[in-house]
Design a protein around this nucleic acid. Sequence first.
DNA 1: GTGAAAGCGCTAACAC
DNA 2: GTGTTAGCGCTTTCAC
Lengths: 320, 320
Amino acid sequence: MAVTIRDVARQAQVSVSTVSRALSAPGLVKEATRQRVLDVVAGLGYQPNRAARSLITGRTGNLGIVVPDLTNPFFPAVLRGVQTRAGEAGTSVFFCDSREDPAAEAELVRTMAAQVDGVVLCASLVSDETVAELAALTPLVLINRIVPGVSSVLMDSAAGMGQVVAHLESLGHNDFVYLGGPAAAWSNNRRLRGLGGRARLLGSFEPNFGGGVAAAERAVEAGATAFIAYNDLMALGVLSHLAALGIEVPRRFSVTGFDDILYAAMCSPALTTVHMPAEEAGEVAVDLLAALIAGGPAEHRELPTTLVVRSSTAAPHSRT
Amino acid sequence: MAVTIRDVARQAQVSVSTVSRALSAPGLVKEATRQRVLDVVAGLGYQPNRAARSLITGRTGNLGIVVPDLTNPFFPAVLRGVQTRAGEAGTSVFFCDSREDPAAEAELVRTMAAQVDGVVLCASLVSDETVAELAALTPLVLINRIVPGVSSVLMDSAAGMGQVVAHLESLGHNDFVYLGGPAAAWSNNRRLRGLGGRARLLGSFEPNFGGGVAAAERAVEAGATAFIAYNDLMALGVLSHLAALGIEVPRRFSVTGFDDILYAAMCSPALTTVHMPAEEAGEVAVDLLAALIAGGPAEHRELPTTLVVRSSTAAPHSRT
DNA sequence: GTGAAAGCGCTAACAC
DNA sequence: GTGTTAGCGCTTTCAC
């Protein structure tokens, strides 16, 4: 078996409680004693057993994050942010991919709740009631969703969408179509709202490449001059399908995305999209979670988004 | 506090050990008793305290995975596979991104070791000795790396590289350059070996988009007709830089990648690359880990890779 | 400032 | 087939 607190106590010639205090409440032991204990700890390579500690404190020192689709680069970016901030506090993080399934999502959170101090829930697809229920189960921070009484960090989709519309209108477009994501996605409704009724709604489509391909098929018949996709993955699908059809972008149609994943800059034409600070959102979510765990009230944070103009948008029916 | 095993025992009119057995060793209790216990468990919504269980059994029911770069879509795919298989066994999984830093990688594994039953280590950058040391610390499964005595699952880079070379040669190329990844990456050496000396080595470069851009700058001066990139992300960077330079692919240069991430199919020209069964590798890694945890010997599994020919390769200096 | 002792919730001998 | 009991390794009163 590994080295325990007793081994340390014996070798440092103190009691186990002193060892415990030296590690978790340094102020309560004489500096000299503390130093002696710490030396022994280092010498023995002692690591407190987290299960034992957890059994007594009721805290696990772990966090969980649930995302709808790990293959969408947006979410790994959030994961990174979460891990970065959590790691600074010595906290480990569990991840789960719900594969866009609301039932799985709720179940995953419930399972996690038993073994973490809190969970970050991204782009949730469950009902407000379920979110509230989950939040009652464990400290919960939502990313890109608002439910009253539950902490959340938002990347401002509505404002971003406003910029998209303004950009397209300044280019001379006045008939665009919104290629919608999952109807259950809060972000989808938020973006739709940001449109302010100035776009026709098509879909919903799956929020991935395939969904974009499907959307493009429908969109070309819609007679609009610009397509606003729910997210970049869809926009990439749209671009791909249009290219396959021999339809030029942005000459024939302008296309925009949302998220600013790396590939938005790499595709051809490079995608005009709304940049989302995904990694930062992950970090902020951990902060909110920490506050919640410490007993604070639910908080809400909004992160700014910015339009990134690239080459997939231009004035209608002309080359700029 | 939450409901404990005692609450269940009391209400089911049995001892705590019977409850424990009903849940973890169903064969040891009478069916009727078991059913009664299960009913109470369901009624009370009892969930065994994992810390307490772990304290006694020495098992956590958790797994960890460490990857070098979450923003490379290849790794989230592996994560997915790991979670899928682990989830089937009720196992949760911790993740960590080492950001291509060998020291961080080792430290992350050490930290995880204390709170998991085993860890999956992807594309490790540490020395063989460190891997062995880590493997002594906790059940360990390597993905895309071989270290004697340590379990591993390999996606056959060498064979894949062989196919790339054969493909390029069949097209008429006979002077190609390999745009190398991290020198410390086992896969890099493996791929280099798969080349069989038929390519000049350039690099190493960072195994990401930026590294590809840097590599492209150097490659155009090398006078070869085809560029073989260490991975897709680099290849995408190469494509991007060549496009910026107004150099046509594949007319002027053929370019190949490795991994077959989603974006390899989406970029323009679509990338000829080697498909890697990343998700499957994650699943298999969990299987090997389970075997290891059960006390089995280190095992080795090899997964086949396949060349995917798209539009970034063609006969030298001509349009096919 | 430090030690002794009582558990946290559970499993695993060990009895019966 | 079931109950009793002794801890797993740690934190935390409570004494001193």
